[in-house]
């Protein structure tokens, strides 16, 4: 049974689908489940957000705000949830975070926002499958 779940999200459609599928997956024992959403902020995003919101504290608050609806959506289904925000190159930080924590599985959507990058560099999800120690579920 996957109870303690780490779910990598970038706020995209694909990530939201991953959330819905995860909820479906754990629905038989949802009262025991916990989904930790994790969002990695890379350098370009930092630059853009600080320009937009003025400073790092406000940017962090705004990012958390952005996921409030999602968390409410998950908790509305009777599953506990929270959000963690990481800083750095997404795949590296996500892998490190996942391996340092004690998760029953890691869930990720199959394709994030940047299609060109996925095409050329390989996707974050591929890297996660390769280097994360716990089971990885990719939602297509």
């Amino acid at each position: 049974m996957f109870k303690n779940i780490l779910l990598a999200t970038d706020g995209s459609e694909h990530s939201n689908r991953a959330i819905d599928q995860t909820l479906k997956m754990i629905s038989p024992y949802k009262d025991q489940g916990h989904i930790e959403l994790v969002y990695a902020v890379d350098g370009e995003k930092s630059k853009k957000d600080v320009l937009k919101y003025g400073d790092s504290h406000t940017a962090t608050a705004k990012r958390k705000e952005k996921f409030l609806d999602t968390i409410q959506h998950i908790e509305g289904q009777g599953v506990k949830a929270n959000i963690s925000i990481l800083h750095g190159e997404p795949s590296e930080t996500l892998i490190e975070y996942a391996n340092n924590g004690n998760y029953d599985c890691v869930v990720i959507g199959s394709r994030g926002r940047n299609k060109l990058q996925t095409l050329v560099l390989g996707s974050v999800s591929h890297k996660l499958v390769k280097y994360v120690k716990s089971p990885v579920v990719i939602i297509k």
Binding site: V41, D49, V50, S56, A59, T60, G88
Partner: peptide, 14 residues
């Protein structure tokens, strides 16, 4: 100071 804020955010430190 703008750059400092960006580095603050990238490294998640003050």
């Amino acid at each position: 100071l703008l750059t400092a804020s960006i580095v603050d955010d990238m490294t998640d430190t003050d």
